[in-house]
C-alpha cells in the first residue's frame, strides 16, 4: 500500500515538472521514463514514508488542503506579517515560552498544526511533545501565561489540523 502511495506522489510530481514538452501535454517517451523513475523511487523509499501514508491519496483531502492553504492559512500569514512589521518598527515585545495543550492523535496532525503555528501571528513552535499532548510555543507577545487550549494561539487551526491529518 505504501508502495502505491509513493509511486503516485512521485509520478504526479514528475507530470507537474515535465508539463509542456509536447504542446501543453506530455510526450509518450517522457511518460514512460516517468513510470520507470517513479517505480525505482517507490521501491527504494516505501519503508520511509510510513504505513498509513495512503490515506493522503483521498481527493476530498486534497480539496481540504487547498481550501485550508488559500483561506485560513494565507489570511493568518497576512496578519502575521503585519504583526511582525508593527513589532519591528515599534520594538514592543513581551516574549515567553508557553505550554499549549492540544488534542491530536497522530504525527501528521502535529506536523500540520506546528507548521501553521510557526507561520501565523507572533508564535513559533519550539518543541512538540506528542507523549504529553502539548506544544511548547515561543510567543512574542504573551497575553495569557497558561492557555487552556490552542484557541488563543492558533485560532481555528487545531480543528483544521485534526480534520486534515485524520
Amino acid at each position: 500500500m505504501s508502495f502505491i502511495a509513493v509511486f503516485i506522489w512521485s509520478f504526479v510530481l514528475w507530470l507537474v515538472l515535465t508539463a509542456g514538452s509536447k504542446g501543453l501535454l506530455w510526450s509518450p517517451e517522457e511518460l514512460a521514463a516517468g513510470l520507470i523513475f517513479s517505480g525505482v523511487i517507490a521501491l527504494t523509499t516505501k519503508d520511509i514514508i510510513g504505513e498509513k501514508a495512503a490515506r493522503f491519496l483521498n481527493p476530498a483531502k486534497w480539496v481540504g488542503f487547498v481550501i485550508y492553504a488559500i483561506g485560513p492559512l494565507f489570511w493568518g500569514m497576512v496578519k502575521a506579517n503585519l504583526d511582525v512589521a508593527y513589532r519591528v518598527i515599534t520594538g514592543r515585545i513581551k516574549p515567553g515560552i508557553v505550554r499549549v495543550p492540544v488534542d491530536l492523535e497522530n504525527d501528521a496532525q502535529y506536523t500540520i498544526l506546528s507548521n501553521s503555528i510557526t507561520l501565523t501571528p507572533g508564535t513559533l513552535t519550539i518543541d512538540a511533545c506528542p507523549e504529553e499532548k502539548a506544544l511548547y510555543v515561543h510567543w512574542i507577545n504573551v497575553t495569557e501565561k497558561e492557555p487552556k487550549s490552542s484557541e488563543v494561539i492558533a485560532g481555528s487551526f487545531e480543528k483544521w489540523a485534526r480534520r486534515l491529518g485524520r
Binding site: 515585545i93 513581551k94 516574549p95 515567553g96 515560552i97 508557553v98 505550554r99 513559533l124 513552535t125 519550539i126 518543541d127 511548547y136 515561543h138 504573551v142 501565561k145
Partner: peptide, 19 residues
C-alpha cells in the same frame, strides 16, 4: 529554535519559560 533552546540560550526578557 529547538537547537538554540537545547544549548541553553534563554529567551531575552521572558515573562514565562515553561521549557
Amino acid at each position: 529554535g529547538r537547537a538554540a533552546r537545547k544549548s541553553g540560550i534563554l529567551p531575552y526578557g521572558a515573562v514565562i519559560d515553561e521549557l
